[in-house]
């Protein structure tokens, strides 16, 4: 039921005593979940480390096929989106509904821009045959160059899926926020999606130098 300022009052779930306990619990759960996300990607980073250690020259040769300019552009998109996300959370905490929606929409657009750039990068790799070994037809100095691209596609692909999931979550926030569900007394989902979004950003901040800026 909407109150007169256009916000919907939040009802604390039956198994919590206070709204504060509910918020703190959600936050702890989210951090635990982010912990597992970190370990999930860490397996891939270990694989990257092992093969870069085994074939350092091949990695340097292969990475020249990536466009650092596109990678840098995407880094700017994601870092900016982290900023707009933080501002979205802040606006929710201050009950500034319209501002919050603007920031969330900006975040969504930046995420879309990231995926569009990624699409063009992937298209170029497909075109030149820089793919995992089953379809690899690219040219290079090393015959096991496909290993680099196998890792490249797994790393950026799984990261891309995380971006897409994040966009879904942000869209969900926009719909609920538009109904007036988020305000100073209740902004838990905005904050949680925010935490998730920063992790997605953080993973990219490691991926960018490791894939695009070596050698």
């Amino acid at each position: 039921m909407a109150t007169k300022d256009g916000f919907i009052k939040h009802k604390v779930a039956h198994h919590f005593d206070t709204a504060e306990q509910e918020f703190e619990t959600a936050k702890l759960g989210m951090w635990a979940f982010l912990g597992q996300e970190l370990l999930f990607f860490s397996g891939l980073f270990v694989a990257y480390g092992v093969f870069r250690f085994l074939y350092p020259e091949m990695f340097i040769d292969a990475h020249h096929q990536l466009s650092w300019k596109m990678g840098a552009l995407n880094t700017v998109f994601l870092i900016t989106s982290s900023f707009t996300m933080v501002m979205g959370v802040r606006s929710a905490q201050l009950s500034q509904k319209k501002l919050m929606l603007k920031y969330l929409i900006a975040t969504f657009i930046l995420a879309t821009a990231f995926l569009v750039v990624k699409y063009f990068e992937y298209a170029a790799k497909f075109h030149h045959g820089y793919l995992p070994s089953n379809w690899f037809t690219g040219e290079g100095l090393f015959e096991n160059m496909h290993l680099f691209f196998g890792l490249y596609f797994v790393l950026t692909g799984l990261h891309g899926i995380h971006v897409a999931v994040g966009m879904g979550l942000i869209a969900w926030l926009i719909i609920r926020g538009n109904r007036g569900e988020f305000h100073a007394d209740y902004y838990t989902p905005v904050e949680m999606v925010g935490l998730y979004w920063h992790l997605v950003d953080l993973v990219w901040i490691f991926l960018f130098p490791l894939l695009y800026l070596i050698g």
């Binding site: 995992p132 070994s133 496909h146 196998g150 596609f153």
Partner: peptide
């Protein structure tokens, strides 16, 4: 799974 589907080869 990727090893089988795509041949990432690692």
């Amino acid at each position: 799974i990727f090893e089988r589907l795509l041949g990432i080869g690692i």
